[in-house]
């Protein structure tokens, strides 16, 4: 790997300035668990790495019943799943962050990095999508927000312009009677990359019988993690029944556009989307029913 300049700014402004490389190849460094591996494999080269972990705003983690969750882009996975408030309010985010790599990887790897890396299999992304997260972006032209399902644009590609960076993720407070779950299928139980990942969230009526709305997101079955909007929408107004779940699974399968690669065949992936969608919805509904009644 070619040597590069390492800088560790402590303010957003400085970081944005350093990221805008004026022709230099510059990348942000969060936990490094993706980018260092890619650099070492000579997938690309950089002239400068901007370590964003020293910027206070990016380390922010605030979770409250009033404002929902603000998750700084440099917060490592373990801080997410060890947070009791997050565990209570956003268990699907705990599902996803505790699946990413090993305990060692979770000490470093961030949700922000997982998202910016934009792997179709990135485990936190379907979870963020079903939870309705928005991305707070800072750049030379100021701040903007983007819905998380619009953030990734292709394998390893995202909407960030040169000099732009992800500052934080904002997750709205989950409504009463809602529940969500993320799960994935891997040949090994841990330390593996999703063959397919599925996240599902549901909002039930007060009687907790009928589904008012649902979101289903799929990982590793398209160039980017995918919001399977039709699959979720067809559940609106339906009884939380097996038949409804089956239909949603079918729609999710139809939404998937998988390829065959060393981790699985397109056929296997389509099949797994159906299986995992049912399982994800089942757990999401169970979680919605578990929560305390409003």
């Amino acid at each position: 790997m070619q040597d590069f300049e390492y800088v560790a700014p402590t303010t957003l402004e400085e970081a944005v300035r350093l990221l805008d490389g004026n022709g230099l190849k510059v990348k942000a460094l969060a936990g490094g668990t993706d980018i260092l591996v890619q650099l070492r494999a000579n997938r690309f080269q950089v002239d400068r790495l901007v370590d964003i972990k020293g910027i206070p705003e990016l380390n922010q983690l605030s979770c409250s019943e009033a404002d929902g969750l603000t998750l700084g882009a440099a917060v490592p996975c373990y801080r997410v799943y060890e947070d009791e408030r997050i565990a209570r309010l956003y268990p699907a985010l705990v599902d996803a962050t505790s699946l990413i790599g090993s305990i060692q990887v979770q000490s470093r790897g961030t949700v922000g990095g997982n998202l910016c890396n934009a792997a179709p299999s990135g485990d936190s992304i379907p979870a963020l999508i079903i939870l309705g997260a928005t991305c707070e972006i800072a750049g030379p032209k100021g701040r903007r927000t983007v819905q998380v399902e619009r953030f990734c644009t292709g394998p390893g590609r995202n909407v960030l312009e040169p000099g732009e960076m992800l500052v934080s993720l904002k997750l709205p407070l989950p409504k009463a009677n809602s529940g969500a779950h993320f799960l994935r299928f891997t040949p090994r139980k841990e330390m593996d990359i999703a063959v397919v990942g599925v996240g599902a969230s549901v909002l039930l009526d007060d009687a907790r019988q009928r589904i008012l709305s649902a979101r289903i997101a799929l990982g590793a079955v398209a160039p980017t993690p995918l919001l399977a909007r039709e699959a979720g929408d067809l559940l609106a107004g339906r009884e939380a029944s097996e038949a409804a779940i089956e239909e949603a699974a079918k729609a999710a399968r139809a939404a998937a556009r998988p390829i065959t690669d060393i981790r699985g065949t397109a056929r296997q992936r389509t099949h797994l989307v159906g299986v995992l969608t049912k399982r994800a919805l089942g757990t999401a509904i169970a979680r919605a029913k578990e929560g305390k009644k409003p």
Binding site: P187, R188, K189, E190, M191, D192, I193, I262, R263
Partner: peptide
């Protein structure tokens, strides 16, 4: 990662 020797799990 893709040559999958068993882990403790």
């Amino acid at each position: 990662l893709d040559y999958r020797t068993p882990t403790s799990m």
